[in-house]
């Protein structure tokens, strides 16, 4: 008989108490699309599973003073069906949508994708680029941190034992702002990103970039923000010279490893390629040009 137990608390306090009081390894379950695979393979052997989906607010999307607030356990499919999110943050939505299959979309969550802390997580570069924050709850109360402070290394986060993410907040959008995400995979679906890139921009009425955030996935131990790449965009239209500088900055920031999904040489080149392509989509969107869903 196994020693693994399960709890589905209905309040934050109850959940925090369960996590704090766990004698062995406690794992937070939201969509489970990573956790269950890790359990089945024996890589993770928890003693307690705390299912957060029954806590009020953990599933759902709401608007607060121009910000979108997304419950940590909201499945991807629900976010993709949200017209407001799609209009304001198409890059975040398309990044989340790229995680796994339709079946995975029925379960996977932003919190799971972030806390699994894979450098190749699809939604994470888009969240980094978006300047999203995570509201974290725990025994010491509630704190709100930029998402880039959550993952600290492959499979590791800055969350304490009794902490979990309650929700994500996306900042209000100025006019002529948009975002985009692309990843490269060998097939058309079902792969882990070889490289991922998320870019969020705000333009002025002449199409000149006023603010930008660029994030790359799968080129370092965690998803990384690339200030030099953002700097290559700010103050410029997306002309050939700007694109070349962006490409170079992205390549310079890429410090990948050789593994079963890609080589260093290839990942560095593709980081530059994707940065250019993503910037083009984000700029188009910010200027109101319609774009199809990117796959």
């Amino acid at each position: 008989m196994s020693g693994l137990s399960y709890a589905a608390p209905t309040s934050v306090d109850e959940a925090v108490k369960l996590l704090a009081g766990a004698s062995g390894l406690a794992k937070v379950l939201s969509g489970g699309t990573d956790l269950l695979v890790q359990m089945r393979s024996g890589r993770v052997k928890p003693d307690l599973i705390v299912d957060t989906k029954k806590i009020p607010g953990l599933i759902g999307i709401r608007e607060e003073n121009g910000s979108y607030v997304i419950g940590a356990a909201t499945p991807g499919a629900m976010v993709e069906a949200h017209a407001g999110m799609k209009a304001a943050w198409p890059g975040v939505v398309e990044a989340l949508d790229l995680i796994g299959s339709t079946q995975i979309q029925g379960r996977c969550t932003l919190a799971g994708n972030l806390c699994n802390a894979s450098p190749a997580a699809d939604s994470v570069p888009a969240l980094f680029a978006a300047g999203a924050t995570a509201v974290i709850v725990g025994g010491k109360g509630r704190r709100e941190v930029p998402v880039e402070q959550v993952p600290v290394g492959p499979g590791r986060t800055s969350l304490g034992k009794d902490e979990f993410i309650l929700e994500f907040r996306l900042p209000p959008r100025p006019a002529r702002s948009s975002d985009a995400y692309l990843r490269f995979i060998p097939r058309t679906e079902m792969d882990i990103a070889v490289v991922g890139c998320g870019i969020s921009v705000t333009l002025d009425d002449k199409g000149v970039c006023t603010t930008a955030r660029v994030a790359l996935g799968a080129v370092a131990p965690t998803v990384v923000l690339v200030p030099d790449a953002a700097q290559a965009l700010v103050g410029h239209k997306l002309d050939a010279d700007t694109l070349a500088k962006l490409d170079a900055a992205a390549q310079a920031a890429a410090k990948p490893i050789n593994d079963k999904r890609g080589t260093i040489e290839y990942r560095v080149k593709v980081a530059g390629v994707l940065a250019r392509r993503v910037a083009a989509i984000a700029f188009d969107r910010a200027q109101g040009f319609v774009n199809g869903k990117a796959h």
Binding site: P186, R187, T188, E189, M190, D191, I192, K260, R261
Partner: peptide
């Protein structure tokens, strides 16, 4: 894909990439 110990690194459908419907 083998590592230098002669162990297969992609023993699953995630990284042994058979064509999917959209391919």
């Amino acid at each position: 894909i083998y590592n230098d110990k002669g162990q297969m690194e992609n023993p699953g459908f995630l990284d042994y990439r058979v064509p999917v419907a959209s391919d």
